[in-house]
């Protein structure tokens, strides 16, 4: 993996009134890596991500994207939420087009949409409306929408929180494959340690509120990972201890 820094977070702090949520967080995200962020429930993971993307203005500190202040209109960043955010009034195909049209990427738009639908296996459902789809298919629509814009940075906030374990594994494999294939940089937030160990190149462990970084663990197990392998279990236990430990 090359070690070019893609995102640089320096001294990020966020207060809501008197409540200190993020306390002086600094780290780098490398180009093309899959970075997982784990932490105890309620530790401010989502605040963290929202500050990252400037949906909230951070109280102090800075986030640089390729050396510039991060800007959603300028930089190609995609975001996948825990809740399904497919537009109900658009078909699957139109939902995928939507992101490209907002970014005015009209060139080769039909091919891009087709490719994205193929990547997530929804080609047959291109003309369906979200209400006609199952939960996992809905989340795949959102994933296709994100990948179609060929983002330089993909942010995922517990994207599989509402899916059953079976679908979860399938979509996790799919996302790892997509990211490696398209060399996308990913920040993936989860409270599920196993998921983090399964997916991440590095795992950033957060402390309880006020949130700061406990440790950054490098996870170099080869993909696809075997959740029953001793190395995997060892890694999982190590991270569990880190989280329990404050």
């Amino acid at each position: 993996m090359n070690k070019n820094v893609k995102v640089q977070v320096t001294h990020l702090t966020k207060k809501f009134g008197e409540l200190l949520v993020l306390n002086d967080v600094s780290f780098d995200v490398y180009d093309g890596e899959f970075l997982c962020i784990v932490g105890p429930t309620g530790c401010g993971k989502t605040t963290f991500l929202n500050s990252l993307t400037h949906l909230y203005e951070p109280t102090s500190g800075e986030i640089l994207f390729k050396g510039e202040k991060i800007d959603l209109r300028k930089h190609d960043i995609a975001y996948i939420f825990q809740e399904y955010s497919a537009m109900e009034w658009l078909t699957v195909k139109e939902n995928v087009r939507f992101g490209l049209e907002l970014k005015k990427q009209y060139k080769g738009i039909n091919e891009k949409v087709k490719d994205a639908l193929e990547l997530v296996g929804l080609t047959k459902f291109a003309d369906y409306y979200p209400r006609q789809l199952s939960a996992s298919m809905l989340q795949r629509v959102v994933i296709a929408r994100a990948f179609a814009t060929q983002p330089e940075l993909l942010l995922m906030d517990e994207p599989y929180g509402q899916l059953d374990i079976n679908l979860r594994f399938r979509l996790e494999d799919e996302v790892v494959r997509l990211c490696k294939q398209t060399k996308t940089t990913v920040i993936f937030i989860t409270h599920n340690i196993e998921e983090a160990v399964y997916l991440g190149d590095r795992i950033l462990v957060l402390t309880n509120k006020p949130t700061s970084i406990k440790e950054i663990v490098t996870d170099e197990l080869p993909h696809p990972r075997d959740i029953a392998a001793p190395e995997f279990v060892e890694m999982r236990n190590r991270i569990t201890d880190l989280i329990k430990w404050w």
Binding site: A78, Y79, F81, S85, L102, K103, L155
Partner: peptide, 24 residues
């Protein structure tokens, strides 16, 4: 959530209104 998703995809205020609020 949809408004947030559109903003994350780079929608400006007018686009949020016409592409999300109106159809919804």
């Amino acid at each position: 959530q949809l408004v947030g998703a559109a903003k994350m995809l780079g929608a400006n205020n007018a686009q949020v209104f016409f592409e999300i609020v109106v159809p919804a």
